[in-house]
Design a protein around this nucleic acid. Sequence first.
DNA 1: TTCCGGCCTA
DNA 2: TAGGCCGGAA
Length: 285
Amino acid sequence: MFIELVEWFARNGRPLPWREPDTSPWAILVCEVMSQQTPVARVLPAWEEWMKRWPTPRDLAEASPSEVLIAWGNLGYPRRALRLRECGGVVAKEYGNQLPREREKLLTLPGIGPYTADAIIAFAYRERSVVLDTNIRRVLARALAGEELPPKSLRKAEVARAEELVPDDGELAAQWNAAVMELGALVCTAKNPKCELCPIAEECQWLQHGRPANAAPRKAQGFEGTHRQARGKIMAALRKTPTGLSRTELVAESGLSEVRFAPALESLLEDGLAQTHRGRVTLPR
DNA sequence: TTCCGGCCTA
DNA sequence: TAGGCCGGAA
């Protein structure tokens, strides 16, 4: 399985700039955080500009929150932009501006959870780690367990199953993780997978069993999204006018009704994504 | 309109 | 361990 996947990756992997060997660990961290929520096509230009502007953790930490939020633009989930900046501050102060390599230390950094820590260990430091993002989880669920999709939350058994496949050698482990992830992104997709292009189709339990649908289909998103959407509209208005707006102007600019506006603004203030300043609402200074 | 995701909180 | 957080593609 290793050879098939790594050879497939060598031929079919996308030439993404952060895969260049001279990419710094910090640049890879930035890319991972951006990619947590956003398709590669939109991360690409944002990452290029971001790294040119703030090449090291300290550079980012020294920028103001409002600058950072404006540069983050519409990448989504702006709390993560603030956490990334805080993360830069911790790395600058506690680790001499060098991203640590130990998993336990990475996990203490703001905005860095198990997936991102493992991805950094693999892709920045080329050391062995068990990377489990949704792409990899889906590929393994299909190939090994014959299931269409993995469960929502990670169980120990799933980690153990993945662990067995990761090579001992760090460089080979990094290649394995990258190859499985890319297969999930390009071929073994959630919908309409291209099994005819899959290098491990012969071994895939899911394909051999006729691609059965998941036992319990994921429940529909329903009616949510309105609050998040309202937050997004307010953030967009604040990015557009960094000098700030009166509350009345902000209601108008966001196009929200008062009943949607009020709780959304309140939650943004609580999250530190906005602040009030002499009767005006602004991005955090 | 529906779908996607890693971190964090409760 | 489930649910909230964002925006754009399909």
